[in-house]
Simulated assay, not measured.
Amino acid sequence: MLIETAGVGDPAYKQCLPREPESARIARHLTASALHTWGLIEAKDSAAAVVTELVSNTVRHARRDTIQVTVTRTGERLVRIAVVDFSPEFPEARNAHQLGEAGRGLAIVAALCDGRWGTDPLRWGKRVWAELAVPEAKPDE
């Protein structure tokens, strides 16, 4: 597994992955590794859910064979998770039917990130991102 670090700017880890469902597991590992490195492990579960949803949406709706996942520390206790793909189509938050299996992903992302998510257009596709505020670790009592 090749994980790259950003050369300048905010600390970041990124990895190109095949556009297939199994890549969600690799993206979770990348995210957990970055959080562990930065001492922000308190966000592990939320970050895993966010990256899984973003990768799953990309696998389902994007074009081409690869995606790129990036985990960036944008502040002392802020982490941005982004997935880049080659589709110009922006994701849309939808109301999921009560018994339907699809349509809840972006609502989950929005809830976990307190609404801090978005899409950046790129010349050849888009970047979908979500930013997590990492809670302070609670001291053991």
Rank of each mutant, 00 (worst) to 15 (best):
R104L: 09
W129N: 07
D10M: 10
L40Q: 06
T72M: 08
R64W: 06
I41K: 08
P91W: 08
P88F: 07
L40A: 05
A102S: 12
G9I: 07
D10C: 10
R80P: 03
R28C: 14
I108W: 05
A96M: 11
W129Y: 15
G9E: 03
Q68W: 00
G115E: 07
C16D: 09
Q98T: 08
V83A: 05
R63H: 06
L122F: 00
G39C: 07
T37Q: 14
G75K: 02
E4I: 04
V8P: 01
A137K: 09
L30M: 02
G103M: 05
E76S: 13
R116A: 12
R77I: 03
V50N: 02
R28L: 03
G125P: 11
G103R: 01
K14D: 08
L54P: 07
H61P: 02
L112M: 02
P139T: 02
H29S: 14
Q68F: 01
E4L: 15
S56L: 03
G100E: 15
E22M: 07
A24N: 06
A93V: 08
G115T: 01
T58I: 06
E4K: 13
A133H: 12
P135V: 09
A93I: 06
A111I: 01
G125N: 10
V8M: 04
V79D: 02
A107R: 12
L2A: 13
D85F: 02
I67C: 04
D120E: 15
E76G: 10
W117E: 00
V55W: 00
E89W: 04
R60E: 05
I3E: 13
W124T: 15
Q98M: 10
A137E: 11
G103W: 05
R104W: 08
S23C: 01
Q15G: 00
L2E: 15
E76N: 13
M1N: 09
L106H: 02
R28Y: 02
A82T: 13
L112E: 06
W129F: 15
P18K: 13
T66Q: 08
G9F: 02
F90M: 11
R64D: 14
R25Q: 12
P91H: 05
R60M: 03
G118S: 06
E22P: 00
P139S: 05
G103K: 00
R77E: 12
E136K: 08
R77S: 14
L106M: 09
K44N: 09
R94F: 09
K44C: 04
E89R: 13
I67H: 00
